[in-house]
Amino acid sequence: MMLIGVNLSGLEDGSTFSTRAYFDYNVPTTSLAESWISLGCLAARIPHNLYRMQPGGQGTALDTTYLGYSTTLAQPCLTAGGFVIFDPHGFGSIQTSGTTVDITTTTGQTQYIDYMTRLAAGIKDWMGDADPSRVAIGLMNEPHQQTNATYQPLWNTVIAAMRTAGYTGVITVPWTDWQGAQQFSASNPVPAVTDPAGRCVVEVHCYLDPDDSGAGDASTSTTIGVERVSGLLASTLPDCYSGIVMGEIGCPADAVSAAALKNTLTLLNADSRVLATTVWTTDKWLINNGNYITTDQTDPRVEAMLSCLST
């Protein structure tokens, strides 16, 4: 059965180079994670800002306080037997010293490999002897500057570096087009990666607004999400993947949008390859976004989430 959960957002908020907790960005509380867990929502995706995680840049240690925000949020989910994803929100870039560089450039790739190696080592130390199938690190949130053919060798290089660092958990693999699920089909399947540990999954995103942007606009059809994920679900995954994660999905609470969400979650839940789905949740920086959702069980979107848990 597919796990349902939320993005515990906030750590990625604000401008790229802002670093003041509770001022430039929000730090979600463990009570937020626990409130979703109490409903049976055991998956958690925890976005973070790469610059805040490694403010000194290439060759320097991660910021232990900032890393601790992520691991503290993850602990209740892991304790409850759930699935947690640590996700670098860089959109295909990495930042240092006030500069942003594409991770596929020579400079960017070197820095990115250093970053991911340190992140993998930090999460490895935190997870200890926990079940490695319950902990994931995303390679990058929504890369979009390059083609899948350009990203593929970089993903392979970074996966190898993370495994060399001793990380044995899951690695979620993004692809271009903002990780849009609709780019894949039976005739255009997900590209393969090479992983010596064999714990990779595909992570895709699917918003239910007209342009799939996540801006929070209402759906125009109750089948819009089904149409966007059907091609992926009709395709065959390469053997290197153990499943699929829907890392971001969301819509407003109007009747058409809520029905679109329920139809999409129902379809995803019926495919045994889909391991988890995480929607966006309470974040004061996003309160005016239509995707904003709380644990209110009368919200039709929450009803849709919980209905999948009971099937």
Score class of each variant (00 low, 15 high):
residue 191 P to G: 10
residue 235 S to V: 06
residue 130 A to D: 09
residue 159 I to R: 12
residue 131 D to S: 01
residue 204 V to G: 12
residue 161 A to P: 12
residue 131 D to K: 04
residue 225 G to W: 12
residue 183 Q to R: 13
residue 214 G to N: 00
residue 130 A to P: 01
residue 154 L to E: 05
residue 160 A to N: 14
residue 149 A to Q: 14
residue 185 S to T: 09
residue 231 G to D: 11
residue 145 Q to V: 07
residue 232 L to N: 11
residue 113 I to R: 05
residue 242 S to M: 12
residue 128 G to T: 05
residue 235 S to F: 09
residue 122 G to C: 12
residue 117 T to E: 03
residue 138 G to K: 06
residue 169 G to F: 14
residue 196 P to H: 15
residue 161 A to Q: 06
residue 184 F to E: 13
residue 210 P to F: 04
residue 196 P to F: 11
residue 179 Q to L: 08
residue 146 Q to S: 11
residue 122 G to Y: 04
residue 221 S to I: 05
residue 215 A to Y: 07
residue 157 T to M: 13
residue 226 V to D: 01
residue 224 I to K: 09
residue 165 A to S: 10
residue 151 Y to Q: 04
residue 133 S to N: 06
residue 178 W to C: 06
residue 233 L to C: 08
residue 180 G to L: 08
residue 244 I to E: 00
residue 194 T to R: 08
residue 200 C to K: 05
residue 188 N to A: 14
residue 169 G to E: 15
residue 118 R to L: 04
residue 222 T to V: 15
residue 123 I to S: 09
residue 205 H to F: 04
residue 146 Q to Y: 07
residue 150 T to E: 15
residue 132 P to E: 03
residue 116 M to A: 02
residue 169 G to V: 08
residue 226 V to P: 02
residue 228 R to T: 01
residue 119 L to P: 02
residue 241 Y to S: 02
residue 144 H to I: 01
residue 160 A to F: 07
residue 246 M to R: 11
residue 241 Y to F: 11
residue 115 Y to L: 10
residue 227 E to A: 12
residue 119 L to C: 02
residue 229 V to W: 14
residue 203 E to Q: 15
residue 166 G to Y: 14
residue 205 H to Y: 05
residue 178 W to L: 15
residue 239 D to M: 07
residue 121 A to L: 10
residue 124 K to W: 03
residue 135 V to H: 01
residue 118 R to H: 01
residue 221 S to W: 10
residue 204 V to W: 05
residue 174 P to K: 15
residue 163 R to I: 09
residue 237 L to R: 06
residue 180 G to P: 13
residue 229 V to A: 15
residue 202 V to F: 00
residue 238 P to M: 08
residue 140 M to Y: 01
residue 245 V to I: 15
residue 222 T to K: 10
residue 169 G to A: 06
residue 139 L to C: 10
residue 237 L to N: 02
residue 243 G to V: 01
residue 147 T to S: 15
residue 212 D to A: 14
residue 157 T to K: 13
residue 240 C to S: 15
residue 230 S to Y: 01
residue 240 C to E: 01
residue 202 V to T: 05
residue 167 Y to K: 05
residue 241 Y to L: 00
residue 210 P to Y: 02
residue 245 V to Q: 05
residue 133 S to Y: 08
residue 196 P to E: 09
residue 164 T to C: 11
residue 174 P to N: 11
residue 223 T to P: 00
residue 144 H to K: 10
residue 217 D to Y: 04
residue 220 T to A: 03
residue 133 S to H: 05
residue 245 V to F: 10
residue 172 T to R: 07
residue 145 Q to P: 04
residue 205 H to P: 10
residue 126 W to Q: 10
residue 205 H to Q: 13
residue 184 F to V: 07
residue 124 K to E: 11
residue 123 I to K: 00
residue 177 D to N: 08
residue 127 M to R: 14
